[in-house]
Design a protein around this nucleic acid. Structure first.
Lengths: 107, 107
DNA sequence: CTGCTGCTTGGCTATATTGCCAAATATATT
DNA sequence: AATATATTTGGCAATATAGCCAAGCAGCAG
């Protein structure tokens, strides 16, 4: 594998890493419905606001979300709704895993 | 967010985490073309075989790939080709990021 | 049985990620 | 100007991840 190819996969991995956390997946799912301010996300997630803010900044620097300040609040929006389609595929993987667990217990 | 929802996103994140590494994305890309033995992946990746094997076991326990032993070799296959479609979306995000970098330099 | 090949596992260190608190910043209100 | 609110940033300790080496295991050849 040459260096260019390596770099390409490293960049792709940065995007995937940004999505590879339960809280950030939740945020993406939420922002897929409508833009939301940090305060509202915090109350839904139940973590420290600083924690949520850092998750948002990870998503933002990956280019997945964008923000807009209006008054005191900062609203976040999903820039790439295509990431929502990941969920469908993932549900397939998960339901297959669940089926296999059932099979194993049946034995 | 209730515990059930939290667990759902935690499970989804496990799948995403399995994909959030350059080497594992490379493997998925490769397996999307044809099943491949560990030895061949090792020679393409250029890391220690034990390292590649561990990456494969992460993908396997996430349910993304499956393996089959034939003789001395173990062949890995992609179980969920839908993950390949992630790449298209990711390329969109990346090319937008590249465009923004260009804009910034032009200023 | 012995040795070889392909692969996996255990163990270890180096590095990265997470989440909280405290402090800093920005905008609105009084 | 002082205060309150919404958010971000710095710093730190706890935890998780990565990759190498060495050791173990399974299948085949002699």
């Amino acid at each position: 594998m040459d260096e260019e190819t390596r770099d390409m996969f490293k960049e792709r991995a940065l995007i995937m890493k940004a999505l590879a956390h339960p809280t950030r997946l939740f945020i993406v799912d939420r922002l897929g419905r409508r833009e939301t301010c940090v305060c509202e996300l915090v109350s839904m997630i139940g973590a420290d606001m600083s924690t949520v803010s850092k998750h948002l900044s990870i998503l933002k620097s990956a280019g997945i979300v964008e923000d807009e300040k209006r008054g005191l609040r900062v609203f976040y929006r999903l820039r790439w709704p295509c990431v929502l389609r990941f969920f469908d595929c993932i549900e397939g993987v998960l339901s297959a895993a669940a089926k296999e667990r059932l099979k194993r217990y049946a034995k």
